[in-house]
Design a protein around this nucleic acid. Structure first.
Lengths: 340, 340
DNA sequence: GTGAAAGCGCTAACAC
DNA sequence: GTGTTAGCGCTTTCAC
């Protein structure tokens, strides 16, 4: 049995060609297919990783993050002969949470953008299989490595570019309050402005939650101010699109009347807002790298915590006006006029 | 051990309350969690089903079908304590195909819209675990049950409604040539027209492949005809959106100059083409029912082949003009004029 | 109501 | 190089 087992596992070099062939042919004829469960039991491994979705991501369809991540992860893991299991959490008691995950029989897990108060962050206190956070940059004390876009660097790039276009009156639509990314994006926004001695009017910094609907509301809120910013940065493309749609319905032009920038360069939204200036965020690559990192941990049996940030890049289209080019931005009364 | 095993599996009625509690408490204290692999080995079951994606659906992101299906399937299977494994096929030789699937260690599988020449259709000749085709109505000789929208009924409804609006010059943009749904939709289109003694001009029936890009090309092709249809039915919303965008760029108005209808009522496209008249297609429900059907087969160990068709419903918005209302449609020369 | 023991299909020491 | 054997952690038949 040793012989058969070894050969079937690909350790051909231990035997002479003749034996190898004999086994292989026999296996072929009998239509033999290894039982992965049995192998897993014996080797204590399942060749499967989990992609954990929190209740918060409830309807996966609406989550434009899950798919590219899944795609990238699939791409890498398929090469390694690993499968992916979708683990959808449904508000289980913390008590059952770890059971649920453990009974999925996985070798490791990808956490899809865990939110700030997610119980999943205590992973290492309950489970011993490796885990990687994908899409949330986590404080180091959780001991969970992550792969994410470098939100701070990317936002800095965007804000500095916008400043270079001559804008000084800058608004901001925040992201979802529970997301680390939202926090980082807003913080960097403020920081860069501060470095340029600009203090944003707080009425121009409004809450959003990454949805188009929240972008619309944000637009209404900002338009209600006495003075308007020349540009508004939205924490993601989704809210930027809502923002722009609201503006458009009020016949306010982008970027002639007001400039808008997004973040993420969401491909699905290209047809809706083809001229949106934003920051490219390669989610497929995030998924790829995260699964690669997870795989390393699984095979090395090391829990080395070396996170990876990937760089975003500025995508300049035409939704942000260049105020330097001698273009005049309309004054407030004109704007109010046009809203009628 | 019998006692423990039985109680842990929920067969409490065999024992007196006292024993049950003793076991449960002990398990709790020891932090016992069953090893699903071992249980699987013993019971010959894995509590996992596969969602099989063909190479054809290569980039899952682009596939607006996979997610709602996954969502529906997750919803049902989570209740049943089943997990879902994503099985992405990558052009393996047919020889390895079945190994690949078998080694995924699943109790059954959902086939995501298998295409016409898919090797997966020979499933029953190679594998003995149950399978359900989701999103492709298959000829009965394959012996694979399916859950799908009733393409024929839905298309009939749409075409008849369009006829009722007074349209007689009707064009059609076909779907992807390898998809059963495309075949059904086109056939029904022709059939309903025939029943009304209308014979569509063949130059108005053009090939598409469900993408927006193919819709644009279709628009160009139809606009190149000497005579134009008053309405064009696109085999899905994706191509309808491309069709409309191409028209819009040429300053042809929908529906004033030409009417356009879609199919599927794809939520992602609502913001892009909010006025598209189409047919509602509840993919989440398809996924739910398909997994339910698969589950039945798994637990009953019956391979009963009873497919399910779910009904679509007409979504009337404003992209199709009512020719009865005394509205005049522009003549050809006006249309050509406007394209300049 | 409970324990002993065989076995699910495979891997990996270990001896030969 | 090759066969024997003892598990992996659970279920289940069969005695008691």
């Amino acid at each position: 049995m040793t012989t058969t087992s070894n050969i079937l596992q690909g350790r051909h070099e231990l035997y002479r060609e003749e034996t190898v062939q004999k086994v292989l042919v026999a296996a072929e004829q009998l239509g033999y297919r290894p039982n992965l469960l049995a192998r897993g039991l014996a080797k204590q491994t399942t060749h499967t990783v989990g992609l954990v979705l929190e209740p918060h991501h409830s309807r996966i369809t609406r989550n434009d993050y899950a798919l590219p991540i899944l795609e990238g992860a699939t791409e890498f893991l398929t090469q390694q002969d690993y499968d992916i299991k979708i683990i959808t959490l449904v508000n289980e008691h913390p008590k059952y949470l770890w059971c649920r995950i453990e009974s999925a029989a996985i070798d490791g897990a990808l956490l899809l953008a865990p939110v700030m108060e997610s119980p999943l962050l205590e992973w290492n206190q309950h489970l011993s299989i490796p885990v990687v956070s994908v899409g949330s940059t986590l404080p180091p004390d959780y001991g969970i490595p992550y792969v994410d876009i470098d939100n701070e660097r990317a936002m800095r790039m965007l804000v500095e570019w916008i400043l270079a276009q001559g804008h000084r009156q800058i608004g901001f639509v925040k992201g979802h309050p529970l997301h680390w990314s939202a926090y980082q994006r807003e913080r960097t926004f403020r920081q860069v402005l501060a470095e340029h001695n600009i203090h944003p009017r707080e009425e121009w910094v409004v809450q959003g939650n990454y949805t188009a609907e929240s972008g619309r509301r944000a637009a209404q809120q900002i338009l209600a101010c006495n003075k308007l910013p020349t540009v508004v940065i939205c924490a993601n493309d989704g809210s930027a699109v809502g923002f722009i749609q609201q503006l458009t319905e009020l016949r306010i032009r982008v970027p002639e009347d007001i400039s808008v920038a997004g973040f993420d360069d969401e491909p699905l939204l290209h047809p809706i807002a083809p001229n949106l200036t934003t920051v490219r965020h390669d989610k497929v690559q995030v998924g790829y790298l995260a699964s690669q990192m997870l795989f390393q941990q699984i095979v090395n049996e090391t829990n080395s915590v070396a996170s990876t940030l990937i760089e975003g890049s500025l995508v300049v289209r035409s939704s942000v006006a260049n105020l330097r080019g001698g273009q005049r931005r309309p004054n407030y009364s004109q704007l109010k006029e046009v809203q009628r």
